[in-house]
């Protein structure tokens, strides 16, 4: 793929923000205000744009904490935000350890089946119980993404290293 094709691909997907490389909390500080500005510039519905922004933050922090490819204080990965007629898409890709595939798959499958009121309950329950073993945050990130998104999909891709892909749609 040459540069022109790459640019066309981004345009065709409505990608207005894409970051690929080392994500650390420092990098997130530098890019989050730009993302916030861009998202609110595209749509003036604050409830919608705050959900898009919130999902972006959770996706970025997942890469920082859990990407299998580590560098200094962060992880390597890609996070992109697109906007089309239908709404916003936030997607994240990062290398992962194959040992965690089963647990992650079960966890995300379960969240996909849940209704908004059940997600709300799950969020509160997790808050009360505290983070599960192996969590580097509050263990709420995926529940939060499921709550804030209209729908989400995930995939595990051998490329040849194992990649975790998570895509969340936010529509008005």
């Amino acid at each position: 793929m040459d540069s022109h094709d790459f640019h066309k691909l981004l345009l065709s997907r409505g990608t207005f923000f894409c970051y690929s490389g080392l994500l650390s909390e420092e990098v997130l500080t530098a890019i989050s205000s730009i993302v916030r500005e861009q998202v609110t510039d595209i749509d003036h519905d604050e409830d919608l744009t705050t959900r898009v922004f919130g999902i972006f933050i959770e996706q970025a922090q997942n890469i920082i904490r859990y990407s299998e490819e580590r560098l200094a204080e962060g992880g390597i990965g890609t996070v992109a935000i697109g906007h089309t007629n239908e709404g916003f898409v936030v997607e994240a890709i990062n290398p992962m350890n194959s040992d965690n595939v089963l647990t992650l798959k079960e966890n995300l499958n379960e969240l996909q089946q849940m209704q908004p009121k059940d997600l709300r309950k799950a969020y509160k329950q997790r808050l009360r119980e505290g983070p599960p073993e192996g969590s580097k945050g509050a263990g709420l990130g995926f529940i939060d993404i499921a709550r804030k998104s209209s729908k989400f999909e995930f995939d595990f891709v051998e490329s040849p290293e194992l990649l975790f892909v998570l895509k969340a749609w936010i529509v008005p």
Binding site: T50, F53, G54, I57, E58, Q61, Y123, L127, R128, G130, P131, G137, A138, L140, G141, I143, D144
Partner: peptide, 13 residues
């Protein structure tokens, strides 16, 4: 608050 992330939710709790 206008926004808080999931790590901060634990703090508010």
């Amino acid at each position: 608050l206008r926004y808080f992330n999931s790590s901060s939710a634990k703090f508010f709790f």
